[in-house]
Design a binder for these strands. Structure first.
Lengths: 263, 263
DNA sequence: TAGTGGTCTAGACCACTAT
DNA sequence: TAGTGGTCTAGACCACTAA
């Protein structure tokens, strides 16, 4: 069952050996802790340990992989830095989840100009299955015309509609996602994706521009057509850098701003 | 001269002692490596090691601070993660500098929609000394009316004017900054700040919005008044989280976008 | 009290760079 | 060849949590 997996680590065959035996064509040895990190990531990806759950202790993992605790520690350090995992002193290491206040703000950068961030009121306008447009297919690494789920929604803060957003999700992964499910679900959408569809968003890239509001969007946001809006186009990735969401948002930035840290 | 500084480390007085002697009012002990990190940061800040220079080796620092190499290592690991320092295997650890391609793109997120990033053509429109407006003074942690240097410039990519930017810098720190100096200087502005004024930008926060172009800016960018522009308001910080620059940019995002990574 | 992650040490060996 | 950062180990002790 959960027995020790067959480890293929180059523990007894240090990197130097590669240079001696087959210089130039060395099969890219990597440090032990990187291999451990990859093995742990595999277990996360396969669902052996689910979001929110406790993973085995450092000592146990060290025994399992036949390495020292320090090596496991360095592997987990990097996973924690990448937000795949959360350490808690005295308790253990947990698989990161979107069902936490912490994780929310990593993926919602729109902040009120004054006051504390608030939770959004979410209104689903449309959910349907359709064939992926060429551009979306390209971004999702699918073939043009493959089945995708399309969602359109409006988010309001303090009663004021602020974000109009369209989402495209791979139809195969999110099969069975319905408007009812989205509407009745409380909490962050990424939380639903994670618990209902086993797909956890790890990171995302965004392209931001200023655009003029089209008539339909303007009406939804209660602004004149042509008003300047922030266009945020996001591609989200899960384990293995696999793209699993395209999101195009139009943000009204009259009393909100997109907050970014350059560090 | 460069003798061993007086170390005030709680090496022999572990954190547990605080709980025993004065519980509740413990004077916040910190781990050794954090103290080492703070000491190294002080040396960076004071200019003991200048941008681009080699800092002492891990072994030497370990001897100087009377700790193990591993502890120094962990301190430097964090400094490297914060981009204050760059490690190079076999050579040593160097103080980070803005005179590198690497550092440029951390602070310039506007990318062409297609093609490689390019270097900007920089046109200085105005440089003058004035009294800080209230809002700028607040952001720079100065008193309203204190002297600041004001700069206005236009940046073009491939000959197309794309960014109109206004900067405010504390007059005391940047005394002697003239239009001539800015114009004749080749390379990134932060590089000039670092070498000529000893002030290195460490991190920055940005507030991004969509706004309509005013008449003057529209003319500079060659767009109609009212065209949507990306407004980027930046506050940059140097060592000790001290704000030393306010920058308000208006970006034309017709063929460029602001690129961001959520991770 | 037992188990967890967090800190610190000391030492070994490796890979890379320069001389 | 010497010196640097990079990896790995083994062991000690600490702080925190929960039973």
């Amino acid at each position: 069952m959960s027995s020790v997996p067959t480890n293929l680590l180059n523990n007894g065959a240090p990197a130097g050996a590669a240079g001696t035996s087959s210089p130039g064509t060395s099969p890219t040895f990597s440090p032990l802790y990187q291999q451990i990190k990859a093995l742990i990531t595999q277990s996360l990806q396969s669902g052996e340990w689910k979001p929110g759950e406790l993973i085995p202790s450092e000592v146990e993992l060290a025994n399992r992989f036949k390495v020292s605790q320090g090596t496991v520690r360095k592997a987990i350090d990097e996973l924690a830095a990448e937000n795949l995992v959360v350490r808690r002193q005295g308790k253990g290491t947990f698989v990161a989840t979107h069902h936490e206040a912490r994780a929310q703000f990593r993926f919602l950068r729109l902040m009120p100009d004054a006051g504390d961030p608030h939770s959004a009121d979410n209104k689903i306008l449309d959910v349907k299955r359709l064939r992926a447009p060429a551009e979306v297919a390209r971004q999702l690494d699918m073939k043009s015309g493959d089945s995708v789920i399309f969602i359109k929604r409006v988010q309001s803060f303090d009663g004021a509609p602020t974000i109009v957003e369209e989402l495209w999700l791979p139809g195969l992964i999110f099969k069975g996602l319905t408007a009812e499910r989205l509407i009745e679900y409380k909490g962050p959408m990424y939380g639903l994706f994670e618990t209902e569809f086993g797909t956890r968003m790890i990171r995302a890239t965004e392209r931001i521009r200023a655009v003029a509001a089209d008539a339909a969007t303007a009406e939804l946001l209660g602004v004149p057509a042509g008003a300047p809006l922030l266009s945020v186009e996001r591609v989200s990735f899960t384990y293995g850098d696999k793209p699993v969401e395209v999101r195009r948002g139009l943000y009204l930035t009259d009393s909100h701003h997109y907050q970014n840290e350059l560090s």
